[in-house]
Design a protein around this nucleic acid. Sequence first.
DNA 1: AGAACACATAGATAATTATCTATGACTATA
DNA 2: TATAGTCATAGATAATTATCTATGTGTTCT
Lengths: 335, 335
Amino acid sequence: MCSVYINCLCELSKQFMKIRQLTFRLLQVYADVVRSGSITATANRLYLTQPTVSQQLKRLREIVGEPIVRQEEGRIVPTEVGQALYQLSQDLLSRADVFSQYLDEYNSGGRGHFSIGLVNTAQYVLPRLLGPFSQANPQVDVTVEVGNRQQMLNRFERHEDDIYVFSHPPIDDAVLAAPFLSNPLVVVGPEQCRWAGVEGLTMDDLKEERFLLREPGSATRHTFNAWLDSAGIELRSTQQIASNEAIRLAVASGMGLAVLSRHIVADSPKGVQELPLQGFPLKSRWHFVVRRERRLPPAAYRFLSFVQGSLAREFEELEGEAAVAELLQVLKAER
Amino acid sequence: MCSVYINCLCELSKQFMKIRQLTFRLLQVYADVVRSGSITATANRLYLTQPTVSQQLKRLREIVGEPIVRQEEGRIVPTEVGQALYQLSQDLLSRADVFSQYLDEYNSGGRGHFSIGLVNTAQYVLPRLLGPFSQANPQVDVTVEVGNRQQMLNRFERHEDDIYVFSHPPIDDAVLAAPFLSNPLVVVGPEQCRWAGVEGLTMDDLKEERFLLREPGSATRHTFNAWLDSAGIELRSTQQIASNEAIRLAVASGMGLAVLSRHIVADSPKGVQELPLQGFPLKSRWHFVVRRERRLPPAAYRFLSFVQGSLAREFEELEGEAAVAELLQVLKAER
DNA sequence: AGAACACATAGATAATTATCTATGACTATA
DNA sequence: TATAGTCATAGATAATTATCTATGTGTTCT
């Protein structure tokens, strides 16, 4: 038995407490005995028999290596060492208790940490969900990661975040996705765009325009391309710009038109306007994406619940709310 | 099995940590794993096998109810809960360590408490031992009880103190006594006493004098009486006074003569002087008295050692030092 | 791809712990 | 001085824990 080695090391210096055998149970029992001054009373309170408690005390005494209580006028009173031990017990037990409370909070999701990875476009709406959530759960600490679709896919592959937001969830069996919010894509032009007032505007009218596009990995671009393909249209002139914000500014300064999430336009409409192109807005939706195998931190779960409770109210997204509700169901079942 | 009841209470609220099974050993192992980031390394360091450590972690995980570590790039890293648990471990272990140190100090006698019961007369010399001891051992807290012989005997009977000092130790098998310091009894008279210069002064000369005596229980009185008896002398006139100090003052004011410990006269010689009566000083000695069955607090043991080391030096009491050394031997053997 | 390493799991066993019941000893109190 | 109450001890047993060895499963480095 290996324990021999270590015990030996301890035994040599003789007077050390045999700390390795010390359990919180013993301390609990001991503390109660000191408080009640009676072994029998403690036994009753803890649903034990009196000899059991006596023996626990004996064992604790052996662990400490010193008498810890004595009987005095019918009461059990701690010796000097016993008093120090009692203080220790109180101290240790209350600390363990604090930890236990922390665990509770952690499990309820009211405390802790989770990280969420957003594709660029989503950063315009997620704050509207995260803000109120953080307000309501100040002890929860959220990390928000933002990147373009490819970067987010990389993070996703490496399991780096707890929740992801994609327009087009990666196809993967080990993944759960819930479309929680519609993300209408609209065509935007500069403020004084000549197409603005045109009724029944079609893509045909715009084919001479230059279109400013996100990089090929981008979901917005992908959706737009798919639509162009299905409509059999090819753009005459395009230019690639890496950020939505840069695109908006470029559009405002008259460099061309663009397809953007309507949320972006709503968020910062300066210098641009939505054009009433037929067939638009293109429908698309953001999805919450979580990995099946990854145990979702309770705080992340709580966030999803929170979102589920506010989509209908704040965003009139009944479908989204239902989808998130279903996601939560599945997660709960798998826990 | 009774454990069922309590477990049930816990199980109902579900997420609580199973604190009763938590041992310090587990925390030690866990803390080491977190520090080293490796199960195998910890196993080696603690002279265990790798599976043993793995299983300890598993058990700890079950106790906590949450995953506490995960493997990440070959290292074991704590989860969020695991980090909190690690902090807890450190905290608890260091507290237990402090207690362990306290125990050491207590056992070495360098810290703690003991009480010593003195008969009145001894209070004139014991401070000369206790003072330096306290100075050298500031963490030791000594209670000194003082009373007349009868009062001390009562305390002794009730096991109220750790060490007693008597001139005449109570006869009791369960008692160890070491005569540590001589206590010469001398006859004293007022400063201008006519007997002061007389050569070959005998009791016969003094039989007309009034003698001021302590109460019958007193050792001083007892010794004096025994001497009177053996010399076949009966005193003409006596008066009983309860305290040595009061007797000294009474003698100084000419109320009579008295037999007192020479230490008292040495301590406060004002108004009195020793008379050169033949046969005096009467020999007597103070004894340290301890009960065999009572476990002497280490601090008390340390005090006796201290005394043993200073008697020869400070009091030229070689015999006393030997007697205390012997006492310590016996105590050590009985521990 | 193969070797080396790190961890997990299974199965076995010895040691320890947690309990109980029964009984004995001591101590107050009626 | 009975009597009741409190604690200690003994003896028995079930449960848990601490270990090991052997083996399996992934990573990581070459």
